[in-house]
Simulated scan of single mutants.
Amino acid sequence: MNLHRKTLVLLHGHGVDDSIWDSVDALLNEYYTVVRPNISLFTFCKTVEEYADELHRFLTTAVIEKCTLIGHSMGGYIALAFAEKYPEMLEGFGLFHSTAYADDESKKHQRNQTIDMLRNYGTEMFVKNTVGNLYGDRFKELYPEKLKEHVARFGKIPTEALITGINAMRDREDRTAVLATMPFPVLFIIGMQDKLIPFESCISLSDYPKQSYPFILAEAGHMGMVERPDASARMISWYMSKI
């Protein structure tokens, strides 16, 4: 056993939990110490900064001093806040279907509508209504049962925890400047069919860091770790070998 293995922290996004990393974890944990915090039940974090503080507490308690942090979607927003507050803990960083830009007014309005929907109809209806936007068209066509599994698994997340996350996402700051100051190359994994964070917006982020490694999942939507786990694991592993 290699006692000096790199630590890879995979932080999931909103509306799911750490189980979304199962397939990628299985492909990587032979080579790295894979850590998957579960933030899906939190109702006490009001901002992405507070989520970042909680992540810091979690890693410190686990006696993790250095890690590569890769955040998916909302996990990326938290990871950027973490990188701003605790840069000394990072030896690598990646955004997985995520962005450093803040919400515009239209997106903030949409978030408020989603909160209203959650309050009125609950988690299961929210997940049923949004699952179609998470996956690419080809994946939905080939694996309709995977979407049913998604609804069954994540339709039980507490409504208040989802609302807490939406509030934090809506009010987060632009953190492109954080990308610009990172002392190591930054990984970007981008879904060509991502309906939540457009491809053009994601690819433009790669101009900010001093060195970027942008990878594109051509047939993936917003859930590349589920849609293309093999390719996702290869991209992460390649990046880990470069830092």
Rank of each mutant, 00 (worst) to 15 (best):
54 E>H: 02
15 G>P: 07
183 P>S: 06
57 R>V: 14
88 E>W: 10
19 S>F: 08
227 E>S: 10
196 L>V: 10
10 L>E: 03
91 E>P: 00
115 I>P: 08
38 N>E: 06
221 G>N: 01
60 T>R: 11
177 A>T: 03
111 R>S: 09
218 A>Y: 06
142 L>C: 09
192 M>H: 15
223 M>R: 01
156 K>R: 04
111 R>K: 04
102 A>Y: 04
166 I>G: 05
26 A>R: 10
150 H>V: 12
158 P>H: 00
98 S>N: 10
160 E>W: 02
36 R>M: 07
203 I>A: 12
10 L>S: 03
185 P>G: 03
85 K>G: 13
195 K>V: 13
139 F>D: 07
178 V>W: 04
225 M>P: 12
233 A>F: 06
9 V>M: 05
215 F>G: 05
112 N>F: 03
96 F>T: 09
84 E>C: 11
119 R>C: 03
210 K>N: 14
48 V>A: 12
84 E>Y: 00
169 M>F: 01
56 H>K: 09
167 N>M: 14
82 F>N: 11
140 K>E: 07
227 E>I: 08
178 V>Y: 08
182 M>R: 08
142 L>H: 05
20 I>S: 01
10 L>P: 01
127 V>Y: 07
186 V>N: 12
127 V>M: 06
58 F>V: 13
194 D>A: 09
147 L>T: 02
223 M>A: 08
71 G>Y: 02
73 S>P: 05
198 P>H: 01
81 A>Q: 10
120 N>W: 08
161 A>R: 04
108 K>V: 04
98 S>P: 09
55 L>F: 10
53 D>F: 06
83 A>N: 08
97 H>W: 03
129 N>Q: 14
217 L>V: 10
209 P>W: 04
21 W>R: 01
56 H>R: 13
34 V>H: 13
68 T>N: 12
217 L>G: 01
61 T>V: 00
141 E>A: 12
58 F>N: 11
150 H>D: 15
46 K>D: 15
97 H>A: 06
94 G>N: 08
123 T>Q: 04
154 F>T: 00
235 M>C: 03
62 A>E: 09
51 Y>S: 13
41 L>Q: 14
153 R>K: 13
33 T>G: 12
215 F>T: 02
227 E>N: 02
114 T>C: 13
163 I>F: 10
113 Q>T: 04
49 E>T: 14
8 L>Q: 04
163 I>L: 03
241 S>N: 15
228 R>L: 15
169 M>L: 12
220 A>D: 00
136 G>P: 05
172 R>V: 07
78 I>C: 07
71 G>R: 04
216 I>H: 06
26 A>N: 13
242 K>W: 05
51 Y>W: 11
235 M>T: 08
17 D>V: 06
19 S>M: 10
233 A>M: 09
